[in-house]
Design a protein around this nucleic acid. Structure first.
Lengths: 222, 222
DNA sequence: TAGATTGTTAATCGATTAACAATC
DNA sequence: TAGATTGTTAATCGATTAACAATC
């Protein structure tokens, strides 16, 4: 019955969905009604069969000879990723990076809404950054529960990252988006996704040095 | 003769090296002289054989029964990644994110030095951000060549990303670290590494929704 | 020596790519 | 119809894991 959800879905496929989404939106802006996987594949330099497999995880069905309806595809991908109705998130660490993320308008596109920022610095608490209040981190657990916020974004210093994660866990948060290079430890039922700039830079510099690297992924266009 | 450099090195291995590096530095701070792969593997939740394979790409040799010398391992990894002597980089787009990156002290650890920022906004040009001058982007190509800068960091708006890439290419830049969600097109000999927040968030939210996801990678700790 | 660990070779696993039948 | 495209099954490829001999 549920051919896709039973077997599990490859993480690489999930990570490519936003790529398709972005491209499809440019097509929609250009008033394209339908699109074939070969067209998507050409534009994104991905194998057409892989594109078909990736799109299949959303449950979309195409029409032979025609392709997929652009609007339907966009809807299906957003629905699959849960980006159709935005999730509220708390940000911990109102420094430079935190401020940048609070000001990043692109989050609306990807279903995330940073509703408040937290810090320990008395100089920051009470101020507003990009129209969001900065609160003391001690207030986070209670507010997270009362506001049903399930996602935490960590932009503290490396030193404070684990403390931030602990506070978020105390607030019953279920997912942590960690922008610090510090690995954080959380209970099994909390999901952690790390944005690891060092890994990304390692991929860049090793290729820059002309080393022969195998298995280039989608984040590497030449 | 060169057992590793002939066959090419897996990109996943390269992306894990910074993870090891960070852990090894905590060991060095604790005055640990030697370390075994089993110890590293336990701490980082990675298979010990995989750790050995990853470390092997740097050319390090360990001693059976003993392990690896911590300091030597750190040196070898930094040398392999080219992080032992920092590379100069230009940043294009002095907005919120650009400002955050200019203020990020962690780059010293990973061999990157942002030496100047560029923008088109007259209000910004001539100012200083975190002690780096903001110059008009028109001056970039000439300066890049004269200063032998080979790395460009793009933190512009989506709209301006391709223009930024073009200017960097005109300056003879060889690698672009793209922080915008826009895919940029560059000549074959220029390396592009994308920091794709949407992909990262997709991995987070799909796991948050309790979907069965295969192939969790290192960026996903639970 | 005994035993922990390295380094390597073989097996497994999953993702990607190729082939092709079904469809409109 | 002819032919482009989907959707699926099989083949390939590479990364990870397991097994194990070599080493000190």
């Amino acid at each position: 019955m549920c051919p896709n959800s039973l077997r599990g879905i490859p993480l690489p496929s999930i990570k490519r969905l936003p790529l398709y989404l972005r491209f499809l939106k440019t097509l929609r802006n250009a008033d394209r009604e339908v699109v074939s996987t070969t067209h998507i594949a050409d534009a994104l330099h991905i194998d057409p069969t892989l594109v078909r497999k990736d799109l299949a995880v959303t449950g979309i069905v195409g029409r032979p000879r025609i392709g997929y309806r652009v609007c339907e595809l966009i809807e299906k991908i957003e629905e699959f990723l849960g980006w159709n109705n935005a999730s509220d998130a708390f940000l911990v660490g109102a420094g430079h990076l935190g401020t940048a993320l609070l000001g990043f308008e692109g989050f609306a596109e990807i279903g995330l809404r940073l509703v408040a920022a937290f810090d320990v610095d008395p100089a920051k608490i009470g101020s507003r950054i990009h129209d969001r209040e900065v609160l003391h981190v001690d207030r986070l657990p209670d507010l997270a529960r009362r506001m049903h916020v399930h996602i935490g974004v960590v932009t503290t210093s490396v030193r404070a990252a684990q403390d931030a994660a602990d506070v978020l866990v105390r607030g019953g948060i279920r997912a942590i988006w960690n922008f610090t290079p510090a690995p954080v430890t959380v209970p099994d039922d909390v999901v952690v996704e790390n944005v690891d700039l060092a890994s990304s830079l390692a991929a860049l510099t090793s290729r820059l040095k002309g080393l022969p690297v195998l298995g280039g992924d989608q984040s590497s266009v030449e």
